[in-house]
Each structure stands twice: as C-alpha cells, then as structure tokens.
Design a protein around this nucleic acid. Structure first.
Lengths: 130, 130
DNA sequence: TTAGTTGCAAACATTTTGCCGAACG
DNA sequence: CGTTCGGCAAAATGTTTGCAACTAA
C-alpha cells in the first residue's frame, strides 16, 4: 500500500518553504514562491507533493468555505480563525480545556462570531471490519 | 444589497427535501433526490438555491477535506463527526461546555482520533473599517 | 408589471492524471 | 536496474455564469 517515497529536491524545498512561512498559502501561492527556487517546477508537482506530504503527516490542510485549500507546515496543536470580511486566516494557540468555548468573545484580536468543531474517528461498523 | 428573494417551487422543495433527511447530501446527491419531484430541475438551480438558502441562514454547510461540500438542513447547535475510513458524516449533539474536549474517546459510537476547531469572526483591521 | 428565477450550455477554478524521459537508491 | 519522479498538457471535478424565456409578488 505505502509507496517508497523519495525525498527529492522538489519535495524537500516544498516542505521547507511551507515550514518557513507563518502564513497558510494555497497551492498556487506556494507555486509562485517556489518558482524563484526551482524555476521549471510545475503546479502539478506542487499538488502531487503536497498530497504526499499530507499523507505522510508532515503538513496539514486548512479547508474553509469559499476559498481553495490552504496548507500549513505547523503541526503543533492549534486551531484557526478566519476573518469573515477579508478572509485572512490566523493560527489560534489556545488551551481549550481551560476556556469556556461558547463564552469566548475575542481571540487573536478577532471579534468572534462563532466556531465549529469537527471530530474525526472511526465508526463502529468500520472498526469491526478492521 | 439584499435581494428580494421569492420562495419559488424549486427553492421550497430544495429546502423541504434538505430538512427532511438526516443525511448531509452533496449538491449532486440532492439533485438526484430532487429529480423525482421536479424532473426538469437543473444542477445549476440546486447550487444557486443552496447558496441563497445559506445566505439567508436557512441551511448550513459542512466542508471537510477530500469530498465536495455537504449541506445540512438542521440548524440546531451541533457538530459533526466523520469516519476516516468510510467517510460517513453524522451529527454530534453534545453540550461541549460540560465536557473535556480533549478527553473524549467516543462519540456517537465512533472512536475519536481527533478534532478540529475553527473560529470565525472579524479581525481588528476590518472591524475598524466598518 | 418587473425584478427575481429557471433550465440549458458554456465557462470557470481548482485539482488530478497520463505520458515519457530523467533521476534516485 | 527497477521504481519513483518531474514537467507538460490534457482531463476531471465541483461550482458558477450568461442568456432568453418564465413566474411570483
């Protein structure tokens, strides 16, 4: 099932670039940054490698409505906040255990309108089949 | 800015259909259901109306990676859980204030592997400009 | 009456894939 | 060497748009 991935120059530079920025670039934005380092790189290579890096757990993805996927090289436990006006996305470092989630009014200098929680796991049917 | 929306037959049936199911259909899946009720309906109409219903706050959207948007007619406060194996999405009704989020091991008969919190609000720059 | 709405087809944006020569281990 | 990889172009996916006819208010 698992492929024998190689750490190629392209893959390494994509990973390093993503880890070096504090923003959460789209594939296209990352592609623009990478062109300076690897002039002949193609967008398909960026996508292919991002997917591989995700599969390997080396990066993560931010998916919010109304915009293309954004990629995140920061694997430490954190959440995201998005401005519903300008669309900017920032990291939220917050020890949620100690907070009353529903009572939070501001975070990162944002005025909070709402939040969403999404769980991921395995349903009982799939668990039995494993 | 706000349009004077009309409740057309298509719009009404789309809303009723979405509210009547416990699943979270994609636009395409909803389109298939609707064809039985309105044979000549088009997928564009489904998309257009879903967007309007969202804008009006009558339905909500679920966005998760690796799948198209899913629509949810249930507006009561709840979260979602997705099976990372089969992809099924279920509602989670949980009073999160009274729980230690990070300690949750099972929900809805799912074995939880993780969760994500996404905040939405307005950043200070946009707030000033309003 | 008239602005909003429809179905259709075509456009669009984002992401994935097939091919084939090149590079890695 | 055999397998994975990259670049390119083409395809696939999910969603939006322009248009002329239609319809709710």
């Amino acid at each position: 099932m698992n492929k024998d991935y190689r750490m190629t120059k392209q893959r390494r530079i994509i990973l390093e670039t993503l880890k070096s920025v504090k923003t959460h670039p789209t594939a296209e934005e990352l592609f623009e940054m990478l062109k300076r380092l690897i002039p002949r790189i193609s967008l398909a290579t960026v996508y292919r490698n991002l997917n591989i890096l995700i599969e390997q757990g080396l990066i993560s993805v931010i998916i919010l409505k109304g915009m293309p996927r954004r990629f995140d090289g920061d694997l430490s436990s954190h959440y995201h906040i998005k401005c519903s006006n300008c669309g900017i996305i920032e990291d939220v470092h917050l020890d949620i255990n100690n907070e009353q989630l529903t009572e939070l009014k501001t975070v990162n200098d944002f005025t909070i309108h709402g939040y969403k929680i999404e769980f991921e796991g395995i349903c009982s049917i799939c668990l039995k089949q494993q």
